[in-house]
Simulated scan of single mutants.
Amino acid sequence: MTQNITTIGFDADDTLWHNERFFRMTEGRFVELLSDYAERDHLETTLLDAERRNLGRYGYGIKGFVLSMIETAIEVTEERVPASVIRQLIDAGQEMLRHPIDLLPHAREAVEAAAETHRVLLITKGDLLDQERKLAQSGLGDLFHAIEIVSDKTPPVYTQIFARHGDGAGRALMVGNSLKSDVLPVIAAGGWGVYVPHGDTWALEHAEPPVAADAARFRELPDLSGLGALMARIG
């Protein structure tokens, strides 16, 4: 075990398995269904505004996304959206909740290797039932020393989690595909953040990399295959 880092946290969606692509596919279906009422750009912008507005009400995940699509459909059609369209949006959401889990390259190997030398945690946000379903189907659940499904990822949340399951944020590292949720708040809490970009990233998760002093505890990897070597270097 490295002298400095004793606990490694992994994000789930689009870090260990694919997720965002199902949202984009469903958004494409939403645009198709409402194409008689508005242009694509307007539909996408209005939907994103609804998602941003509703985060505090519904949280992250598929259910909030479906409700935001329905709200947007009502808005752009001036409350004339056919019931059949609402039904198809609900059906699309239910299909998302049934989608199979497809692990990203090197995900299993990275978690297995980390678990041999460190405490490993899964730290994910979203709907409790859906996240539990995905974890069960992933086959990775038994590798983690603890699972944390949270409503949001902030510096205080990471501080509490790494104090509860480790030696504090100062001896912890978080791996994830979101600078906004997985990297910046961990660094703000005093830990390390490892950014592993994913091709599909939700617009509301975009952020700039850390600068100045915080950049010393920031690393970026093209994929999870390089995590072991990175741990050896920074330990």
Rank of each mutant, 00 (worst) to 15 (best):
E205A: 13
D152S: 12
E79M: 06
L34P: 00
H18S: 12
F218H: 06
L103A: 01
Y58F: 15
D11F: 10
G170L: 06
R219D: 11
V81H: 00
N19H: 12
F65K: 07
R171P: 01
G193K: 04
P100C: 02
I86S: 04
D200H: 15
Q137D: 15
I234C: 00
W202N: 10
S138D: 13
S84T: 13
T77Q: 02
D102L: 10
L128K: 11
R233V: 09
V120T: 14
G176W: 08
G168Q: 14
V76E: 00
E78N: 11
V85A: 00
V157I: 13
I8W: 02
I187L: 07
H106D: 01
D91L: 15
L129N: 14
R40V: 13
T201Y: 05
L33T: 00
I123R: 13
G59R: 02
R57C: 05
A207W: 09
M174E: 06
P197I: 12
L55I: 11
V186Y: 03
A107I: 05
K180R: 15
V186E: 01
A169N: 10
A146F: 07
K153S: 02
V111D: 05
F22E: 08
M69N: 03
I86N: 01
E20C: 06
E220C: 15
A203I: 08
L221T: 11
H18G: 10
A110N: 01
E20P: 03
L55H: 05
L173F: 07
L16R: 03
H165D: 09
Y37E: 07
K134N: 03
G64C: 05
I90Y: 07
P105A: 02
L129Y: 14
I161Q: 05
R87C: 15
G28S: 03
E116H: 04
S181L: 11
S225C: 06
L184P: 14
I86L: 06
R52S: 04
G168S: 11
L184G: 12
S35V: 11
L129T: 11
E75A: 04
L221Q: 12
